[in-house]
Simulated assay, not measured.
Amino acid sequence: MTKFLLAVHVIAAIVAIGPVTVAASMFPPAARKVLEAPDDTSALATVRLLHRICQVYAVAGAAVPVFGFATASDMGVLGDTWLIVSIVLTALAAVVLAALVLPRQGAILEGALGDGTVDRAATVRLAMFTGIFNLLWATVTVLMIIRPGSTTGA
């Protein structure tokens, strides 16, 4: 059962978290294009699509910790330090995405579509929060691979 749970956990991480990190990273430069050329409907459609990808895959990403907990429980490593650190970083990444990245994307979209109150600085701040989100996930990925104290010999 452990191998199955681990496989689902890894597949969920690749399929759900990967698109969020890529789409979130692509959003700020795409939003800058919209700000530079507000009449460019193609650029605006791209920004809308990237935001939608982030929203949908953020929800799908909830499967990653669910299967992660199931895998860790089955392996008997729930109390290991590397896993606790990974859980904290995962929770922090979720908060950054839900509280800082997605709302700012939405605000940029609303500003670009409506009153034009969004400026380049807003996209730069969004890029910073997106970078923090991506760095947190990269750290979790490294911890999952290295797993200090692992018996796999890695």
Rank of each mutant, 00 (worst) to 15 (best):
L113D: 15
L92Q: 04
G114C: 05
V118C: 05
V88C: 03
G106P: 11
D80L: 02
I108K: 05
G79V: 10
V95T: 04
R120S: 13
V101L: 06
V118I: 14
E110T: 14
G106C: 02
I132H: 00
I132Q: 00
R125K: 14
T81H: 13
T81G: 10
V101G: 00
A98G: 13
G79P: 03
L89S: 07
S86K: 14
M128K: 11
T130Y: 01
T130C: 09
T90P: 07
D80Q: 15
W82N: 08
T123H: 03
G116Q: 08
L78E: 12
F129E: 00
V77E: 13
V96L: 08
R104V: 01
A91I: 09
T81W: 09
R120H: 13
A99K: 14
A107W: 08
V124M: 09
A127G: 10
I108Y: 09
T130I: 09
V88Q: 11
I87W: 06
V95S: 03
A91E: 10
R104K: 07
R125G: 02
I87F: 07
P103G: 05
G116N: 08
I132G: 00
T123Q: 06
A127Y: 04
I132E: 01
W82Y: 15
Q105G: 01
G131W: 05
L92F: 05
I84Q: 12
L97S: 00
F129W: 12
I87M: 14
A121L: 07
V88W: 05
G111L: 11
T90V: 12
D80Y: 05
M128H: 07
F129G: 00
V96G: 00
Q105I: 01
I108F: 07
T117I: 06
L102Y: 11
L109I: 04
G79Q: 15
L89K: 07
V85W: 13
M128A: 12
D119W: 04
V124G: 00
L78G: 09
L97Y: 03
A127V: 06
G106T: 06
Q105R: 01
A94E: 03
L78F: 06
S86M: 08
R125F: 06
L113A: 15
A122V: 09
I84D: 02
G114K: 05
A99N: 08
D115L: 06
Q105N: 03
A98N: 08
L100D: 03
V95K: 00
T81I: 07
A127P: 04
E110R: 15
Q105H: 01
G131N: 05
G106W: 04
F129Y: 11
V96A: 03
G111W: 10
T123V: 07
G79F: 13
L126K: 02
V85R: 14
G116K: 06
L97M: 14
G131A: 02
G111R: 08
M128T: 12
V88T: 07
I132D: 02
P103F: 11
